[in-house]
């Protein structure tokens, strides 16, 4: 297993904030909008340095999405920011009509996605947003894994013409990707080559998968690890190439098993190469209050669960 290490832990949302600071200095068309969650989205520096390019919308997300769409018409690049729950499900129709169907260059950048926002509980822990957003024609869906990748993804989203849903989170997690990485939307990152099983992970689950791969290596299992930061468009070629070697797959995401990355991969495999697949995802339920670590364990998203899923996938492969 290729070695991945870290010297510090940071939240992915701070990677977004750092990118916005950079964009504020380098791209005069970038505008930030927020629905009363500036501190949580880490855009204080952007606002301080570019007060004219910040639009405080108050707790009114539907209006924020519409304003972002209007801002984009003459060439501004609006980043509409809030929590993932309020920037997806709550405003689905606004995103559908005013952004996606209107072909608007709007970036919906949302924090506190998934279970790992922790103690606030299920009202805030959206686990359906990837599904909602990937169903919209023309929408790009990105779910980066650490601070550095989130920063790079944000800058890539600003440079890309078209609507983007950029999803990140609240907790501090290891920073294990390069600070100076190139981020290509829709291009998977092959983190480790292997032959026994393909593990595809997105977001906070990538680090869990790295740990799982380390343990698998000790057990003599060669896992191929792919980081899918872009869920739509999906890097189909990378996935198909990998499973042609490994013949079984485990998908890992902090999302409902219905409608997320796992389903996108399953759809791909059904069409081109049906193979045993195991899901690491929340099993069609809401979350609850707890620490991120407790929740990841209870809802089956941690390293131990990935190891069990790998074991099961390999067993199914051998049984066929």
């Amino acid at each position: 297993m290729k070695e991945y290490t870290y010297t510090e832990k940071k939240d992915t949302r701070s990677g977004f904030g750092a990118a916005m600071t950079e964009l504020g200095r380098t791209n005069p068309n970038v505008i930030a909008l927020c629905a009363d969650l500036v501190g949580s989205l880490k855009i204080d520096t952007f606002i301080k340095e570019n007060p004219d390019r910040f639009v405080q919308c108050g707790i009114a997300e539907a209006n924020m999405i519409g304003i972002a769409a209007g801002l984009s018409i003459a060439g501004h690049i609006p980043f509409a920011t809030t929590f993932a729950n309020f920037g997806s499900g709550r405003v689905y129709d606004q995103i559908r009509q005013s952004v996606a169907y209107s072909d608007k260059n709007v970036k919906i950048a949302v924090s506190h996605a998934g279970l790992t926002l922790g103690e606030d509980g299920a009202t805030h822990q959206i686990l359906e947003d990837i599904g909602l957003m990937k169903m919209l024609p023309g929408m790009t869906v990105i779910n980066p894994c650490d601070y550095n990748q989130t920063k790079a993804a944000t800058i890539a989203a600003a440079n890309y013409e078209g609507p983007v849903y950029l999803r990140f989170g609240r907790p501090v997690v290891p920073v294990f990707t390069d600070a100076e990485q190139t981020f290509e939307i829709g291009k998977a990152w092959l983190m480790n080559e292997g032959t026994d099983v393909t593990i595809i992970a997105t977001g906070h689950l990538v680090w869990e998968a790295v740990q799982a791969c380390n343990q698998l290596a000790e057990m003599g299992i060669n896992a191929e690890l792919i980081n899918i930061h872009t869920i739509k468009p999906l890097d189909e070629e990378a996935i198909l190439t990998s499973v042609s070697k490994t013949s079984c797959i485990v998908t890992c995401e902090e999302h409902n098993r219905i409608g997320g990355l796992g389903d996108s991969v399953a759809q791909l495999l059904i069409k081109y190469n049906p193979l045993p697949q195991e899901y690491i995802a929340v099993d069609d339920s809401f979350g609850e209050s707890g620490t991120p670590k407790q929740l990841m364990e209870k809802y089956g998203l941690d390293t131990d669960h990935i190891l069990k899923a790998v074991e099961k996938a390999i067993k199914r492969k051998k049984a066929e």
């Binding site: 639009v55 539907a62 209006n63 924020m64 999405i65 519409g66 304003i67 972002a68 769409a69 209007g70 801002l71 984009s72 018409i73 003459a74 060439g75 501004h76 609006p78 129709d93 606004q94 559908r96 009509q97 005013s98 169907y101 209107s102 608007k104």
Partner: peptide, 20 residues
């Protein structure tokens, strides 16, 4: 310049265009 049909969205869009 904007799709409309699902009601209630046009004023927000117009405000965004006005800010722009």
């Amino acid at each position: 310049r904007m799709s409309a049909g699902s009601l209630g969205q046009g004023l927000s869009v117009a405000i965004g265009a006005a800010i722009s």
